[in-house]
Amino acid sequence: MIELEHVSLSFAGKPAISEVSAVFPRGSFTCLIGANGCGKTTLLKLIAHLLKPESGKVRFDGRALDDWPRLALARRLAYLPQTRPLPALPAYMLVEHGRFPYLGFAKRLTAADHAAVARAIGATQSEALAEAELPVLSGGERQRVFLAAAVAQETDCLLLDEPTTYLDTHYQIEIMELVRQLHQSGKTVLMVAHDLPQAFTYADTVCIMQEGRLLAAAAPQALCGSELLREVFGYTLRRSTDAGALYPYYLSR
């Protein structure tokens, strides 16, 4: 369980996150939505302990993040940033790096680690990509392999920053179906999303942010068609009656 208690952070005097309080229960699937620059990514980084709040507390399983040993936290919480360097590595080696928090001083993989890597590659159906170097993979394949690394990390919580941005639609669906599978296997998922119909389709809770504030956190059904969406985004969402629709929600004026 992740708890935020009056969390605030500013960059160069400009508030980025203001007084955010929220609870993300174990096993939930939450999407953070809001306009660009509203603080979604910053909030995710605060939860990933990559940033520290100026005031307020972030807790994971009842313990403040500052009190977690680095490696112990990394065994519970995996984070996938939106942009990252792309070293020339074969994909399986990236997945092996997902085992880093479990390795001893010499940082050598044991048989158990190799088994976890194989499981992660299997669970993400990335067997065919394992030998390829990261720079030659397509965007969707890369995302799949990075997810495999996060799976190999065997955390119970997955923090994703816009995992489907820049991807073709069918890759977006593939990645989101994979995230849904991971959620169903018991992981808590917290995801920054930019595509509203997609977020509403997969999440069980949607958090709307604006200018560093958390305006609402509710089930997609409750927010669907709301005036709040219209205020924040300029349009709202409606349920589609088309049985063949990719997402059962569509954007509407």
Binding site: A48, L77, Y79, P81, R84, P85, P87, F100, P101, K107
Partner: peptide
């Protein structure tokens, strides 16, 4: 340090979220 350098080249954010100082 070599095993840690391997993780360092994945970038600061990924490395930190894997538990590297």
């Amino acid at each position: 340090l070599a095993g840690r350098v391997n993780v360092l080249i994945l970038g600061d954010e990924v490395a930190a979220s894997l538990g590297l100082a």
